[in-house]
């Protein structure tokens, strides 16, 4: 009887080892060997013919075999399922190098992203962002800014006029006096916006461009403070190693006035193509607010002082992104816009 059982075991082992066993044959084997009419049951049915003393032994062995068979079939089943999963995964293999389906994402205009970045830097230093009209009174654009009656910038060849007294602002500086009229010191503002000058369009000129104006007015404001603020700005905008340099210049609305250069962020000041070998790049005009401008804003220049600066957003965007033709900024070709 034991031999018979061993023979059944051998048969099952043999059958399970066959290549073509699948889920279906596995179920057939379960029925054939473990089913109610299965081989193992058949053997156990024949136990009655055994001597009583052998029965427990054979019975125990048969039970052990049942457990073993169940385990064998279970393992085989697991192996089959695993193989089937592997095969499925293999079938599902895709070409991961094929292109992705990119959701449509637009782009911010490079001038706008530059403006936002500049504004955020000044906002983090406590400057409020304010605005002023683009179509402006000559008073705010020139007179209140201490611009002499015969100053060339007032010419029809330089400034777009609407009437004798109304023009397209040539700078964001008129926001200075408008702000002083509305606020009391301490004043700390930046004003971005469009400005207009009568220049034909070419690679470096445009009749419309953008500026960012800055104004600080309080007691004891010095030119050193101007330098400190602009240095911080340069380091945030152009990188931590950036330095700035003041050069004397003249603007009607600041005195003393300075043009400001930033150390070239490409070569670090050694001289390269971007800075034309100078090591420095001119980025803005600035100075101590002229007493006449403070007066025009209703602020006593004997008590208060201030500084102001103005920079071209196009210029900064162009040097940062290496754009060599200003016209690209207004053409709005998406092959250009997609690069930013």
């Amino acid at each position: 009887m034991i031999e018979k059982l061993n023979e059944i075991r051998r048969q099952l082992t043999e059958l399970l080892a066959k290549e073509d066993v699948d889920e279906k044959t596995l179920e057939e084997l379960r029925i054939r060997f473990l089913g109610k009419k299965g081989e193992l049951t058949a053997v156990l049915r024949g136990m009655g013919s055994l001597p009583p003393e052998e029965r427990p032994k054979v019975g125990q062995y048969a039970n052990e075999l049942r457990e073993e068979f169940e385990r064998m079939l279970e393992e085989k089943g697991a192996a089959l399922r695993e193989r089937a999963r592997q095969e499925k995964l293999e079938r599902e293999r895709i070409d991961v190098t094929a292109p992705g389906r990119t959701p449509k994402i637009g782009r911010r205009h490079p001038l706008e992203s530059t403006r936002i970045e500049m504004c955020e830097i000044f906002r983090s230093m406590g400057f409020d962002i304010v605005e002023g009209p683009e179509v402006e009174y000559a008073y705010y654009n020139f007179d209140a800014l201490n611009t002499p009656e015969n100053h060339p910038s007032r010419d029809l060849t330089d400034t777009f006029y609407i009437t004798e007294n109304i023009l397209l602002r040539t700078q964001t500086s008129p926001v200075q006096v408008r702000t002083m009229e509305q606020r009391k010191p301490p004043i700390k503002i930046v004003a971005p916006g469009r400005v207009y000058r009568s220049d034909e369009v070419d690679a470096t000129h445009s009749p419309l461009f953008h500026q960012l104006e800055g104004l600080v007015v309080d007691k004891h404001i010095t030119m050193g403070d101007l330098k400190g603020v602009l240095e911080l700005f340069a380091q945030k905008m152009f990188g931590p190693g950036s330095r700035i340099r003041f050069r004397p210049h003249h603007f009607p609305f600041t005195e003393p006035s300075a043009e400001v250069d930033v150390s070239c962020f490409v070569c670090g000041g050694k001289g390269c193509r971007v800075c034309k070998g100078e090591g420095w790049i001119e980025i803005l005009g600035s100075g101590v607010v002229h007493p006449n401008v403070l007066r025009a804003g209703g602020i006593d220049p004997n008590i208060y002082s201030g500084f102001a600066f103005g920079m071209g957003i196009e210029r900064i965007a162009m040097i940062r992104y290496g754009i060599d033709d200003m016209r690209l900024l207004y053409e709005n070709d998406i092959r250009f816009l997609a690069q930013f």
Partner: peptide, 15 residues
Amino acid sequence: IASTLFTSGVSVGSM
């Protein structure tokens, strides 16, 4: 001219 930072009190820039 040495860089200095003015001290007109802490403020948060607004938009």
